[in-house]
């Protein structure tokens, strides 16, 4: 880190001396530099994986600004399109699927992992220091000459002329990697694929509910999600309340709402809750016959079974 910090100002200074860097570019550098360093540190120290990913995004976009400021427009924009737009987005995709707010655990899963990591990091640092320290620069050609024609055209000449072999090798490597991923994750289908149609047919064959379930809460006063709908005979339909609420026991008392409709039908006035309860199985004011067995939604246990089958 210290090595990089000593190199960066020197590089900026050198550019100023050669008359290449304008004041605006220097200001941009000194504004973006601290932001990038802070974001890079954020990557190391952020507790949540998504925050670390966001710090990397910030570094990448700032880097793109610097590229554009130095006349490498194509590189800067492609940096955002490819790295920020595609690669980091895929990272984020995986992170979000791994867990919504699970922080990294700091438990070592491999013995001595930390020391191996430190050693490898040190090795990389030494190699980088060696390369950067021994690098020599030729006389700069100048941005106008480098961008002769236009910036994308100049880069195209470099990539498909001077470095075409490396490009082809990298391309072959990437294609191989993608194919490898496909082969490794491919699974032979042993059974026939079950589609929407097959599932619907099977459900009906097993005597399931043929249409969508009734929506909960049919009354203007009680249209909350936990209030069961009433069937034409005034009895509550348990299946109309979402299964999650029923499992949690957050369902409203169905009998009470059934009782209310009884009172309304009997010419009474539904006042207050729970003051008057009637069991319509015992005294049925209209002398209606018992419900037809097998009618969907009449029997709580039956509908529950249907829910389970789905």
């Amino acid at each position: 880190m210290s090595h990089v910090l000593t190199v960066l100002p020197a590089a900026a200074g050198a550019l100023t001396e050669s008359g290449q860097t304008s004041t605006a570019e220097a200001v941009l550098f000194w504004v973006l530099g601290p932001i990038m360093v802070l974001a890079a540190l954020g990557l190391l120290f952020a507790r949540k994986a998504v925050h670390a990913a966001l710090a990397v995004v910030l570094v990448m976009i700032s880097l793109a600004f610097l590229y554009v400021a130095q006349g490498a427009e194509f590189l800067g924009v492609v940096q955002v399109v490819v790295y920020t737009g595609a690669v980091m987005m895929l990272f984020l995709f995986v992170l979000m699927l791994v867990g919504v707010d699970r922080s990294d655990s700091l438990v070592e899963t491999i013995r001595g992992q930390r020391w191996i990591g430190v050693l490898a990091g040190l090795g990389l640092g030494v190699v980088l220091a060696g390369v950067v320290g021994r690098a020599t620069y030729g006389t700069p050609a100048g941005i106008e000459e480098a961008n002769a024609g236009s910036n994308p055209a100049a880069i195209a000449h470099l990539i498909f002329g001077q470095h075409v072999f490396a490009m082809e090798v990298v391309g072959a490597l990437l294609v191989t990697a993608a194919l490898g991923a496909l082969v490794l994750t491919h699974r032979q289908r042993l059974t026939r694929k079950v589609g929407q149609r097959e599932r619907a047919e099977r459900r009906l064959r097993e005597g399931g509910y043929p249409v969508s379930l009734p929506a909960p809460g049919v009354y203007a006063r009680h249209n909350a999600l936990d209030v069961p709908a009433l069937d034409p005979e005034g009895r509550p339909i348990e299946a109309s309340v979402p299964r999650v609420l029923r499992v949690r026991g957050q369902e409203a008392d169905a009998r009470e709402y059934a009782a209310r409709i009884d009172r309304v039908l009997a010419g009474g006035w539904a006042t207050g809750a729970g003051t008057f309860t009637s069991n319509r199985d015992v005294d049925d004011p209209h002398g209606r016959t018992a419900p037809t067995p097998g009618t969907p939604g009449t029997d709580a246990t039956e509908t529950d079974d249907e829910e389970g089958a789905r």
Partner: peptide, 19 residues
């Protein structure tokens, strides 16, 4: 020279808002 790529870049960063 890369104005249309810049448009694509803006669009791809804009998705971060949704995600």
């Amino acid at each position: 020279p890369v104005a249309v790529l810049y448009i694509l870049a803006c669009a791809s960063v804009g998705v971060y808002g949704i995600v």
